[in-house]
Design a protein around this nucleic acid. Structure first.
Length: 233
DNA sequence: CCCTGATTCGC
DNA sequence: GCGAATCAGG
């Protein structure tokens, strides 16, 4: 596979949306997780919390190179740094043995300023769906319920592809639930005919769903499965 | 073991 | 530019 503009765009959206490289690779298809990571870095979109790079060492201190470069001559002689010239903040925080109780006369008010009160409450992205939308797991709903919209509610306009078609919400036990098209696609809908009484499908689709077992040798090729058979990627 | 992202390096 | 191999932490 090649990195078309659409695939790059999807990769970028999902990467920035917080999807893992594996999810992105799986969603794009035809590429490996490594390919996704490599491409993301080449696009300049790294900078994401990596499990392997928790700390923040300012410089890469020789991460045990197993494969040293063949040519690396004349290392510039480092000027000997002053041994005692770093970490002023550490000195301020670490010592001071008497260390008075932290809540003294400093801030009489602000009672709940400490004790870890501020939860960022950032929505945890679980995965990214086919359209690049962000999925959340159960219980991951954002805490603040969306404030009551001060607007008049207007019926959503169905997309033109499914206008007049039988959607999931239109299903009841009197109309045929035979799926037409692929779930997730804009024109996915259901048959919608009146059902064969006692069955979930109309007469025609009952004939597809329930096949009499024919004697060996008298079988016909099986009719196409619902959803049009396995998805080809 | 599994997962993750980062990096390297031959192509 | 690409991505498999590899590294390294959780």
């Amino acid at each position: 596979m090649s990195w078309t503009d659409e695939r790059i765009e999807k990769l970028t959206k999902m990467w920035e949306g917080g999807a893992t490289a594996s999810q992105i690779a799986d969603e794009l298809g035809g590429v490996s997780r490594n390919a996704v990571i490599g491409k993301a870095h080449r696009l300049g979109l790294k900078a994401r919390p990596s499990p392997v790079k928790a700390n923040d060492k300012p410089a890469r201190p020789a991460p045990a190179p197993k494969k040293p470069k063949p040519v690396e001559a004349a290392p510039a002689p480092e000027p000997a740094p002053a041994p005692r010239a770093e970490a002023p903040a550490a000195r301020a925080a670490a010592p001071a043995p008497q260390a008075p109780a932290p809540r003294a006369p400093a801030q009489p008010v602000a009672p709940a300023a400490d004790a870890a009160p501020a939860a960022p409450a950032q929505p945890r992205i679980v995965s990214v769906g086919p359209g690049g939308f962000l999925r959340q797991g159960p219980g991951d709903q954002q805490q603040p319920i969306p404030p009551a919209p001060p607007r008049r509610l207007v019926p959503a306009k169905p997309s033109p592809e499914i206008a007049g078609k039988t959607s999931l919400l239109d299903l009841n036990d009197r109309i045929c639930r035979w799926p037409m098209g692929h779930p997730g696609e804009p024109d996915f809908h259901f048959c919608g005919e009146k059902v064969n009484p006692g069955f979930p499908y109309c007469v025609e689709h009952c004939g597809r769903a329930y096949q009499a077992q024919l004697p060996r040798g008298a079988r016909r090729a099986p009719p196409p499965l619902p959803f049009g058979g396995p998805r080809v990627r």
